[in-house]
């Protein structure tokens, strides 16, 4: 894909810039759509209708209207806030969420950067987000924001460990950090998908990854950094207008990022579930996106079902449940791989 574009345009730098914008083409409409989708799912799970007016058909344009409203709003920076960090924080959070997409393969033919440590890179840059959250919480000069930021830092740092460990289990089988390599290792039949391999070890790994990823992106039941009923709005209490919208965008981009990683690593990525049928570069885009949307749906489903944990219980789940189980899985997969030769 990249070589093709370089031939076409003749300038390598231009191609890089162009390719950097490709995920944005998906993320922006996705965030708009997902916010609307989440509201509709929430509403129907609660026997309500949700947005129905804007745009005509089931209020599909509601988020567009919301974004227009947010753009028009006054950009308020509290007097006591640290102006530089306060303004920078939403961008840092969004950049942290967005850079992960550089290494995510959307199809057999398209991946932003074909680096052979793709998975490692994604784990590394996604922890960048926490710096932005800490910046937001600290610079707001609001105790509630600070609480949110501190909770968020503790949470993201703890839950990155089970995420890394479960992904490591797959890496041990494939023998590569390259996501395209992981995808190719799952091609063929649906049974080659890692979630069905080494049963039940990798199934449990997928489950642990999913639970930990909920915490990573601050979704219920792990949404304590922005726990509405406790911390008002957590680290973004003082934010309004476009800066708030950026936080929101980053949250949905992050939701999608962890889902697409789950789809890639455990659900065969761009591989078709029907073996060779319906496969190909474009079908690949369809499959990987629909698998990740499935994960996004489950995230929303959980959010509108469950209460949230307390901060110490969150640490309990992370350190005393997920991490020991991840180690057991790693050990099990290691022995399995060793015995298979």
């Amino acid at each position: 894909m990249k070589e093709l574009l370089v031939d076409l345009l003749g300038n390598e730098l231009l191609v890089y810039v162009l390719m950097a914008f490709v995920p944005l083409l998906w993320i922006l409409p996705f965030a708009l759509f997902a916010v609307w989708w989440e509201r509709k799912i929430a509403a129907h799970m609660q026997d309500r209708l949700g947005p129905m007016r804007t745009g005509g058909w089931h209020g599909w344009a509601q988020t567009i209207a919301d974004i227009l409203k947010l753009i028009q709003k006054e950009d308020i920076i509290p007097t006591a806030a640290d102006r530089l960090l306060f303004s920078l924080a939403p961008f840092v959070v969004f950049i942290g969420a967005y850079t992960a997409f550089a290494a995510i393969p959307f199809s057999a033919a398209y991946v932003g950067t074909e680096i052979n440590i793709g998975l490692f890179y994604i784990i590394a840059v996604s922890s960048f987000v926490v710096i932005g959250l800490l910046m937001a919480g600290w610079s707001s000069n609001n105790k509630w924001s600070l609480f949110g930021a501190m909770r968020s830092a503790a949470q993201v740092v703890s839950y990155e460990i089970p995420i890394a460990l479960t992904l490591l289990a797959v890496v041990m089988i494939v023998g590569s950090f390259d996501l395209q390599e992981i995808n190719r290792a799952q091609s063929g039949s649906i049974l080659n998908w890692f979630i069905f391999q080494k049963f039940p070890l990798l199934f449990a790994a997928a489950l642990i990854y999913f639970v930990a990823s909920l915490a990573e992106v601050n979704r219920t039941p792990f949404d304590i950094p922005e726990a509405e009923s406790e911390l008002v709005a957590g680290y973004h209490t003082e934010y309004g207008g476009m800066k708030f919208a950026l936080f929101f965008l980053a949250e949905y981009a992050n939701m999608f990022a962890v889902s697409i990683i789950a789809a890639t690593v455990f659900l065969g990525g761009w591989n078709s579930p029907f073996g060779e049928a319906l496969s190909g570069p474009l079908w690949g885009v369809f499959w990987v996106l629909s698998k990740s949307m499935g994960f996004v749906f489950v995230q929303m489903w959980l959010r509108w079902t469950l209460p949230r944990l307390r901060v110490d219980q969150l640490m309990y789940v992370g350190w005393k449940v997920l991490i020991p189980f991840s180690f057991v899985i790693i050990l099990g997969v290691g022995f399995w791989v060793l015995l298979e030769g």
Binding site: A43, M45, Q46, R48, L49, R53, T305, L306
Partner: peptide, 21 residues
């Protein structure tokens, strides 16, 4: 219990809403 809860909310996803426009 999480699965039980999810079953209930999933069922409600397809029940007609009680609110009106």
């Amino acid at each position: 219990t999480i699965l039980i809860g999810m079953r209930i909310t999933a069922r409600h996803l397809f029940t007609p809403s009680v609110t009106i426009q």
